[in-house]
Design a protein around this nucleic acid. Structure first.
Length: 745
DNA sequence: GTTAGAAACAATCCT
DNA sequence: TGTTTCTAAC
């Protein structure tokens, strides 16, 4: 048991209890991933369980990847047999094998949010519903929660009887589902729901998986919804060796169907369940934990627990209210700069957390000006960008001809002169004949209404057919390359030659390299396989540990992560907690928001900084907010500046008054042609004297991150030079000489 | 059929 | 404020 000696007694108990249901209530930072990995090792090495019989399920690819890595390290031989995967990937893998039993084709497509919206638009058109009055998003929300709760269209219709509004929703749900099936597509919720349906309708398939997965472990159990709960229940139904890990205080996904009852009543559902509590925190200082405990104690509906740590008191929590959101961003970025320059940590140790993605913009602006390395998680997904989606739609069309949505998306990309009229005619013909859109295109000669346009359609159909015939001997990246060449997509962008079009080409290159990486890594690469991998990645998955950049993300995305220095921004009533929850008449909404705050606080290891602004622009309107009620819930003695004197001094410089003073002094001296910069730039530390530059306009220079490029402009900006460089790989960037550390080559 | 410019509308949070 | 959709002119 030597390997397990490094675990505390509760952790050991959880590791060694292998038979029957087990609930591990793991507080934030209590080492739950550690327990899960050691438990897997224990099963294999001490209990002689075949790795093939063990399954560990998480929510994100990142979490799965981490667990995979740690298990491999710990177990060594045979560990690759353990099934470590996310809910969605697991289900896709099962469905790819068996979904034909439910009347779908095994090469089904997965629809993302954009696709869903487009499909819903079509549904509303068919049902003659005015989308000005009844929003697509609304219907999609209703359907999504129905699916999360395993309510079928038929059940929904039955429950809706007599209620006019619900009846219409039922009709939309039915049509939506029918069209998904016709397109041979599944939406995200279907992945789970259809797997449950498969297990319930085809007992032999279920029996097969029950026999395989004799030991099931589920991470972040508090986030499971009804469908996921049912899935787990079915899988573990035979052997009952179900180990779930979670923390009810970190349940923050009610809006996507998470049912907190799954964890709260685990002991009722499995009366013989053993419960282990992990309450020792290994991550944060006592002050940070006290703050977190202070906040969460205001929630009523929770399992009582108290986190403690050996880590010592640590510094106090730095709280500051700034005048505007701009000053808030300035303050935080200056503080990070101070920490890095003061040797207290690297950029990678710092995370800025906020409630809404929109808040990231201000920080990004400042970070660019300050020339600090950063990475924003979330926002617009890479795979949701136009150019990427266009190319993927080609791949989907080649892979699955029933996917009308994809075909319609690309039929006129690049421009082939096929407009709305022609598409409408093809559509009408397809509906009349009961064909898919693509099949109708193939029979274009038989469509009476189309004469001239036929000549424009035929080359498109030809192209797709040729690509399909090449599938056998081409790799995914080769197929993609041929699509790019055949359509002239990149050529067109090159001709445009704008900053935007260059960025798009870059994205396409990135897509190509992802396809290439997939070809290399996958055991048996297929087009379907690539498309599904692409559909299931989340932005957070690509976050690499050990990279040296400031990370920006929402509180939601931060769950499961930890950083030495955490900045919680925008703690204002109305923003966090949001107006939605403040005005809600369901008290549970505010409690969920409070849990989100708890999650944020407990991400911090050594330093926590909380900020808010008196006024900020929201949707073009000025909003005046007071300090968040959550801040008031932190015991007062924990707030303040427990930092070194040196750092405090540097912080003073960014105080609104002195900052403005500094600017007003500076402005008249230097020319007005650069007013924007004189006003907004956060200056490098005061004692940086303006060094002479070793390069001038026209010189070749090298940058740590951006590679090589040519200097196109140098502007004197007071204490520093603003240098514009045309980089070979990443395009034109403006930067300050002091930070950029450009080397002449 | 295509395009640009104006009007309308909109943000929680995510796999 | 930023994005999507609509409208009118090419």
């Amino acid at each position: 048991m030597s390997k397990y000696g490094s675990l505390n007694s509760m952790q050991q108990e959880a590791v060694a209890y292998t038979e029957g249901p087990l609930l591990i209530l793991a507080g934030a930072g209590s080492g739950k991933t550690r327990v899960l990995t050691y438990r897997t090792a224990y099963l294999i090495e001490e209990k002689g369980v075949n790795p093939y019989h063990i399954m560990a399920i998480t929510f994100t690819n990142k979490a799965a990847g981490e667990m995979r890595e740690r298990i491999d390290k710990l177990v060594g031989f045979g560990s690759e047999g353990v099934w470590v995967s996310t809910f969605h990937s697991t289900c896709v893998r099962i469905l790819r094998r068996y979904i034909e039993r439910l009347g779908y084709d095994n090469s089904f497509t997965i629809y993302d949010a954009d696709d869903q919206k487009a499909l819903m638009k079509e549904v509303c058109r068919r049902l003659q519903i005015d989308t000005k009055i009844y929003k697509e998003k609304n219907f999609l929300g209703v359907i999504s929660s129905a699916k999360d709760g395993l309510v079928s269209p038929e059940q929904f219709a039955r429950q809706a009887r007599g209620d006019f509004v619900r009846e219409r929703q039922a009709a939309v749900y039915r049509e939506y589902q029918a069209m998904l099936q016709k397109n041979n597509a599944l939406d995200f919720d279907d992945l789970i729901g259809k797997t449950v349906e498969l297990f319930e309708q085809v007992p032999e398939v279920l029996a097969n998986y029950q026999e395989r997965f004799r030991y099931v472990m589920v991470d972040e159990y508090q986030d499971t919804n009804t469908a996921q709960f049912r899935l787990i229940e079915l899988l573990a139904g035979k052997y009952q060796n179900l180990c779930v890990v979670g923390d009810d205080d970190q349940s923050i996904y009610k809006f996507r169907g998470a049912n907190i009852q799954n964890i709260l009543s685990f002991e009722e559902i499995y009366p013989n369940a053993k419960v282990v509590r992990l309450e020792q925190n290994y991550r944060s200082t006592q002050n940070i934990l006290d703050a977190a405990n202070g906040v969460i104690a205001h929630n009523i509906a929770r399992k009582d627990k108290a986190l403690w740590t050996d880590n010592g008191q640590g510094s106090r929590i730095d709280f500051r209210q700034l005048d505007t959101a701009y000053e808030e961003a300035d303050y935080i970025i200056r503080d990070i700069q101070g920490k890095v320059q003061g040797g207290k940590g690297s950029y990678g140790d710092c995370a800025i957390l906020y409630r809404t993605n929109a808040q990231s913009r201000l920080f990004e602006e400042r970070l660019v000006v300050a020339n600090m390395p950063y990475r924003i998680v979330g926002g617009v997904n890479f795979y949701a960008r136009k150019e990427v989606k266009d190319l993927l739609a080609y791949l989907k069309t080649i892979d699955n001809g029933s996917d009308d949505l994809s075909v319609r998306r690309i039929i006129n990309i690049p421009k082939r002169g096929i407009g709305a009229t022609t598409i409408g005619r093809v559509q009408a013909y397809a509906e009349e004949q009961g064909l898919s859109f693509y099949d109708a295109l193939q029979q274009v000669d038989d469509i009476q209404a189309i004469r001239k346009a036929g000549g424009k359609i035929r080359p498109f159909v030809n192209f797709i057919q040729v690509m399909r015939s090449k599938l056998e001997y081409l790799s995914v990246s080769q197929v993609l390359q041929e699509v790019i060449d055949g359509t002239g997509y990149v050529k067109e962008l090159e001709a445009e030659n704008t900053e935007e079009s260059r960025a798009r080409i870059e994205n396409i290159d990135e897509l190509l390299s992802k396809a290439f990486a997939y070809d290399e890594a996958a055991e048996t690469p297929t087009l379907s396989g690539f498309l599904e991998e692409v559909a299931l990645v989340a932005d957070i998955d690509s976050l690499q540990e050990g990279s040296d950049y400031v990370v920006l993300m929402t509180f939601h995305s931060a769950k499961g992560l930890e950083f030495p220095h955490v900045y919680m921004a925008g703690l204002e009533d109305g923003l966090f907690p949001s107006y939605m929850t403040i005005l809600s008449d369901d008290l549970a909404d505010l409690e969920e928001e409070r849990r989100l705050c708890y999650v944020g606080i407990t991400r911090a290891m050594s330093d926590l900084s909380i900020t808010c602004a008196r006024q900020r622009m929201i949707r073009g309107e000025m909003q005046y907010n007071t300090v968040s009620r959550f801040v008031q819930e932190i015991p007062r003695h924990l707030l303040g500046r427990g930092k070194t004197a040196a750092l405090e001094k540097s912080q003073k410089e960014v105080q609104p008054q002195s900052f403005r003073e500094a600017v007003s002094k500076v402005k008249p001296i230097f020319s007005t042609r650069n007013t924007y910069q004189s006003r907004n730039v956060s200056f490098p530390s005061a004692n940086t004297s303006k060094a002479t530059l070793e390069y001038q306009v026209g010189d070749r220079v090298a940058h740590m991150k951006f590679g090589e490029g040519t200097v196109s402009q140098i502007v004197e900006g007071g204490r520093d030079y603003e240098v514009t460089v045309d980089f070979d790989k990443v395009g034109t960037k403006k930067m300050f000489a002091t930070f950029a550390k450009l080397k002449k080559v």
